[in-house]
Design a protein around this nucleic acid. Structure first.
Lengths: 358, 358
DNA sequence: CTGAAAGCGCTTACAG
DNA sequence: CTGAAAGCGCTTACAG
């Protein structure tokens, strides 16, 4: 099979060469639409139409062009198409992490929508860094994307400037924008933090600590929700907060548990800003012989797969991440297609999963 | 800042419009290199050189072009560049999963290499499906990539055909090719499976089971290594193997533990084809009151972060996934740059992590 | 060190 | 339903 493919290629090359003459050619050597058209005995633009708007072309032409495509092994040149049509069919997605299950699910949701169209996804990992985000956006803007999907509501001035200058439609994912002019899909991170803290208070916990890492906008919003609930209940105490800029991990959770306990030995619950930290904290408790939840309640955020299976299972907030990706991409497509969305802010909510650990 | 940016844009637009005249223009409206050149008072190609080969241009020209770029907010059009230069500066990466920590690390390693050059990564998630891989490759080939990074050694005939037809250099990741003409970076999955099984045998285990999911090439190679060791030791028994096509997960590991125990109640060790399954199996043991490793030894593969922290910690194989990505991308770059690699098969090895669970 | 011309491989109006 | 011409925004030889 591979062999016949090669021979077809070379026979075409010969024809092509003799036609063009042996003068310096800048051609790439790959089969062009012009070659397909010649093979099918139609003009280039008719061949183009047969491929892109087949309903505008006669059955005969469509069949002959299809045959030529197969025989010559034609692969359209996307760069040429993008240049001529001034439409890249590219959607850029910027996420702060690829190793985070949350953003994997978001990407999955986006992919599902994108797969139904002829879009190509340009995925960028900002690694929670403004500088990286600026760099990636600058690079990806060169590809003239039709739309952009961003994680989070707030971005650096440089990013805002690039975005404004490009005029490309943007949808923000994960949290809800206060400005209705900003398209956003997610849920209120602050409300979720508040809800979890209220849950702990209602279960009788009083010295509730908050452990936060990475300090990205979502962690900060969850912390704000925690603080609000603690203040309302008259339980607020700054010594109960431990915020570090390092990346979340199980190892960090284990370490922060120790630091928190040293800082506030009387704390009776720990709200971890995500499940990775919660898992690490629980494993550390197991190593230290601290009973969870009897001595210390521990809860997380995001409901990672392990949270339901661990012993004790982990109380956490389940987040609609797949839906976030799906709805954000759907919204973006609508805007790209020129439809004015009725709702500019899509709240997908969250669910408290009460389990054994808190 | 955003405001001043806008005003610059519009003032330029006016100039541009008046120059072009009000005839039907197909222009995108974005600043072109020609506009930059005009602003700097040089020809378009000199402006191009100032940007791409600054050393070939006078200091004065370089400065004037740089100024024009800033004033006009020029963003190069990648499609135009790709078309004119017949070089896309795109590298395609196809991985079977994005939610797997292993491939996240591989992508990280690739990114590190790619970031040092002006390459753009086109990341595709094949979801362990040949059909998806064919579709993605077909689409990505339209972008005329300079190189391709593939996961695994074997691919469908259609993929092989597309690859051969494109003439684009390919490096295979994760396992080692037997054919030296095929560029590969990874380690022997079979040897790793063999090594783990030998370890269990040497620790006195006799009824060693193998649990495999997904049944991708790597799982199959690990199973082959397991089988080889079991046969050599005269311990082989088909009832000790449980292979299912479903995707690996903690939940599946928990389920398969039950099925394995029902199938072979006398088994004294379970080699799980990856850590997700091992974690699920261990959690299930905790729920059933089965002592690990006393009653049943359980080991995994890949050394996920939780494996070192769980109680019991998990015996597993640590794999050089970041290095795989890094070395594969480095090798691919060398080939793209026309260097003939001295070694076509890079063995990065693996490490057995002996911990509490086995 | 700099430039006029041609061309990369497509699609877009405009005709017929 | 089909086609001749122009153009998208860059870079590549080739000169000077």
């Amino acid at each position: 099979m591979a062999k016949s493919y090669f021979s077809i290629c070379s026979s075409y090359s010969l024809k092509h060469m003799s036609k063009t003459g042996s003068t310096k050619s800048r051609a790439s050597g790959r089969t062009t639409l012009a070659a397909v058209a010649a093979h099918a005995g139609v003009s280039t633009m008719t061949a183009s139409r047969a491929l892109n708007q087949p309903e505008l072309v006669s059955d005969l032409v469509r069949a002959r062009v299809a045959l030529a495509v197969n025989v010559l092994g034609y692969v359209p040149n996307r760069a040429a198409r993008a240049l001529a049509s001034r439409q890249s069919n590219i959607i850029v997605v910027l996420v702060p992490s690829l190793s985070n299950v949350v953003f994997n699910a978001v990407l999955d949701g986006i992919q599902t929508v994108v797969d139904t169209a002829n879009y190509q996804l340009l995925i960028g990992n900002t690694r929670y860094s403004d500088a990286e985000e600026e760099k990636l956006l600058g690079t990806y803007l060169q590809s003239n994307p039709d739309g952009i999907l961003l994680s989070g509501l707030t971005h650096s001035p440089r990013v805002e400037q690039l975005l404004a200058g490009s005029g490309v439609p943007v949808v923000s994912m994960m949290d809800l924008a206060s400005d209705p002019a900003q398209l956003s899909v997610g849920f209120s991170q602050l409300d979720a933090g508040y809800t979890m803290t209220r849950y702990l208070i209602e279960r009788g916990r009083r010295r509730i600590a908050f452990i936060g890492a990475q300090l990205d906008e979502r962690t900060l919003a969850r912390a704000a929700g925690y603080r609000k609930a603690m203040q309302e209940a008259g339980l607020a105490d700054p010594r109960l907060e431990l915020m570090v800029p390092e990346a979340s991990s199980i190892a960090l959770g284990a370490e922060l548990l120790g630091r928190m306990l040293a800082k506030a030995p009387d704390c009776d619950a720990i709200f971890c800003c995500n499940d990775d930290l919660a898992h690490g904290a629980i494993y550390q408790c197991q190593r230290r012989g601290i009973a969870v939840p009897e001595q210390l309640a521990i809860c997380g955020f995001n409901d990672l797969p392990a949270s339901a299976w661990m012993k004790p299972s982990v109380t956490t907030i389940s987040t609609p991440r797949y839906q976030v990706g799906f709805e954000a991409a759907t919204l973006l497509r609508a805007v790209i297609d020129g439809r004015r969305p009725a709702v500019t802010r899509i709240d997908l909510g969250f669910t408290l999963m009460a389990r054994e650990s808190a």
